[in-house]
Amino acid sequence: MGRYVMRRLLQMIPVFLGTTFLIFVMVYALGDPVAAMFGDRAPDPSTAAKIRHDLNLDRPLLTQYVLYMGKIVTGDFGEAFNGQKVTELMGSAFPVTFRLTIVAILIEIVVGISLGLISGLRRGKIVDNASLFFTLVVISIPTFVSGYLLQYFLGVKWGVVEPTVSSGAPFGELIVPGLVLAGVSLAYITRLTRTSIAENMRADYLRTAVAKGLPRRRVVTVHLLRNSLIPVVTFLGTDVGGLMAGALVTERIFNIQGVGYQLWQGVLRQNSPTVVGFVTILVIVFLVANLLVDLLYAVLDPRIRYA
């Protein structure tokens, strides 16, 4: 087990280097950020040259990358164009997005799995069909539609919640955005759980469990659900990274200054320290989440062993 984790951690290094380099090249390919800083006016050549020089933009791409990575190792992620340290931006953005992700994941787990379980148990019945219909509707509505609709009705028209999240982004205010963010994944989780449950209902170990007279509650929760969760956990694992990076639309609608928003700003202003810095952290989040998922398999299914 320990060796397995070790190996996986070591594998992360090349993946990490590869992804950061790719992102660096992509931001670089977007063009020269300095010209945009001057607005519609042609940049004055000496000032532009000076800014480029100070940002290392006048060096070859590979040198820029090496210089950048050298700084990252010492914990210096550079500065955004407004003079704010990227680490400072991360410090304010990641906790906010993290809270939003937790809210979304909790909603996904609680609602998605229970819906999936119920419809899997009652296959072909009204509940099952209703949940199929519900998930189809949810999947087919894009986030910005559900986001603006909920914001307009709950926030503006009926005034039940604040339409926007305040700067501290406490959990309470994140429930509606979390719901919007969770929407699509929630539908997937429901479908995944349902299929998996329906399949395992016919498994031998389940028949055995029923035959030896275990109470239904125990059969369903311990034997059926636990074994059916493997595909769901796989999905949730990748979803954590996706939710953190992909919350851009939701974050903009509800005024949440999280990771997605900062990334978007970074791309718009072509500030490579911001973009590469945030993506670097996201890559780590992805890698760790995937590792955790793999480890969770062993917990869920005793037949799986890592060496």
Partner: peptide, 10 residues
């Protein structure tokens, strides 16, 4: 604000 539309809702 992250977005003008959001501010408009507010």
């Amino acid at each position: 604000y992250t977005d003008g539309n959001t501010a408009y809702s507010d």
